[in-house]
Amino acid sequence: MIRAAVWIFWKDITLEFRGRELLLPAGVFGLLIAMLYGFAFDPTRNGLHGMFPGLLWLGIFFASFLAVGRAFSVEAEASGQLLLAPIDRGAVFLAKLGLNVLLTLVLAAVMTPAFSILLQVSLPQDTGGFLLVEALGLVGFAAAGTAMGALSAQTRLRELLLPALLLPFTSPLLLGVVSATEGLYGQQAASSSNWVLLIAIFDVIYIIVPVLLFEFLTEV
């Protein structure tokens, strides 16, 4: 199962490397969000500092939509040929999850410094903690996005449906990462550790549950 997953993952990476269909548009969109936030909320104003965690995470989530929705649409457009392969269906899901985790991590790695520079807010002092929050948050978002992407790819609307399904679904995750980041800035009485735990629980549930249910999706 792992071997098959790695091969599918590698196939998608090769496709992305040749076609640059996901990261480039999503990355440009991500940087644009930072620019537009800069226009909309004057960075020289004082209040922006308190809003920074929320702005950053919303930006990353929105840009990630462009990337995570494509993972399964690509296969749907190829008429689901991948499902003819005699492999465990869970492997397909894991491979797509791996791809989405990688894509969102790259996006966040580009967008986080860009947001910090353009909005003139320095990143939290606790770099290790911040990286942990980013990594766990993005894994959760990628897992939820892969699950909902697998569902929406088979609809008439394809990725258009994804925001309506994914945004309410990931609302606890958004609350978690924003609050944890605020905690790292020392803005809250409550520590980030509770929130990190909540994000981790979300991650574990939404990696395991879709892997178990994915088999049903490929039957029909």
């Binding site: 088979q154 399904l165 609302s171 549950v209």
Partner: peptide
Amino acid sequence: VYSAVYGLIVFIDVPIVYLSVRWWSSI
């Protein structure tokens, strides 16, 4: 099948939503 899978995934989300919102509004 797709709506059944969505129904399952989403229902599991409800307690997580409630927990997160409660923590958030308590702060």
